[in-house]
């Protein structure tokens, strides 16, 4: 392995050394680069257009059709905004997002830092922390359902600490929190892996330089490591936010949106409208709203990201 990496870096260094500094023939270069870019991006863009954008367009049309009508209009949206259950769902989803995203990102970053230190068995612990993401969701939901039963092991453990039986999923005050714990059990290790990849990619010379300047651990972390990590961190921020809007299986299997709508997150709402109530046009309207809202949030995140490209 060292042979190949050595060769790549040699070649790269040679290339950098020889790099001439002359003004490029701008327009021609732009045209050439556009053609190249199309060649490189075409397979993926075609796949995305056919597999995501096209069906979304079809959902958009459906969302504009009131049930039993073939005239385009905003009736479905009007219905949604006058439906208290819908508004409550929005509140629950926002509350969930506001808690779960910072929680997961902070924990994932902390674990990523911890598990890139030179510790005994560190690679093994990394795999363990990641594993929940690979467990089929139907099974992990059942496992947690059993764990959080009133007579389950979590309550059994609390009892040894002298804490009373907690209702968890069957309480409207604790159910959302329980779902957050479950999706974080899955999500933290998953997002951690992206940050570990990013951390391992930061050249050691940066922290070496900081150390020579006499910077402490926290200073190095904040002023050297975090800026170097901005791209993976930006990715995790955006991708985690989107992923948490799409949480579905634990809700469907464990709480079905209850008790009293306390865990009725947007994807379960869309699923139950479409596949349980058979109201495809309302489900499509909710999907359109969801995409618009997530788009707005992600655009905002892009603007706030440091070192925007």
């Amino acid at each position: 392995m060292s042979e190949s990496t050595g060769r790549v870096s040699d070649r790269a260094e040679r290339a950098v050394r020889r790099s001439p500094h002359r003004p490029p023939a701008r327009r021609r270069a732009q045209g050439r680069e556009a053609v190249l870019a199309l060649l490189f991006t075409a397979p993926a863009l075609i796949a995305l257009a056919v597999l995501r954008l096209w069906p979304m367009g079809s959902a958009l049309t459906t969302s504009l059709l009131a049930p039993g009508s073939d005239v385009l209009g905003l009736e479905n949206f009007r219905y949604l905004f006058s439906d208290p259950a819908f508004l409550e769902m929005v509140r629950v989803t926002v509350l969930f997002s506001v808690i779960v995203n910072p929680l997961q990102i902070v924990l994932a970053l902390a674990l990523a830092v911890l598990l890139t230190q030179r510790l005994r068995g560190v690679r093994f612990w990394r795999i363990l922390v990641f594993l929940p993401a690979a467990v089929p969701q139907a099974v992990s939901a059942i496992v947690w359902g059993v764990a959080l039963r009133p007579d389950g092991p979590v309550n059994g453990f609390l009892a040894t600490l002298g804490i009373d039986v907690q209702p968890f999923l069957s309480s409207k005050d604790q159910a959302l929190f329980s779902i957050i714990v479950i999706v974080s059990w899955i999500g933290v290790g998953y997002w951690m892996m992206f940050l570990i990849a990013g951390l391992l990619d930061i050249p050691a010379m940066y922290s070496e330089a900081a150390a020579i300047d006499g910077a402490g651990w926290w200073q190095t972390f904040w002023f050297v490591i975090i800026p170097q990590l901005r791209r993976p961190l930006g990715f995790v921020l955006v991708a985690d936010t989107v992923a948490n809007f799409l949480v579905f299986a634990p809700v469907q299997i464990l709480t079905r949106g209850g008790p009293e709508g306390a865990t009725n997150l947007v994807m379960f709402e869309i699923y139950s409208r479409a596949y349980q109530y058979g109201d495809l046009s309302l489900a499509a309207a909710e999907t359109v709203l969801l995409v618009l809202i997530v788009l707005a949030i992600v655009t905002l995140q892009f603007r706030l990201l440091p070192g925007k490209d």
Binding site: L36, L45, A49, R52, L53, A239, F248, T287
Partner: peptide, 25 residues
């Protein structure tokens, strides 16, 4: 690559991952 329309192509990518696959399945 630097070219005109790059932002649009990138926007397609971003929008595509905002679309919940199960909802358009």
């Amino acid at each position: 690559f630097r070219f005109r329309g790059r932002a649009i192509l990138f926007a397609i990518v971003v929008i595509s991952f905002l679309i919940p696959f199960d909802a358009v399945a």
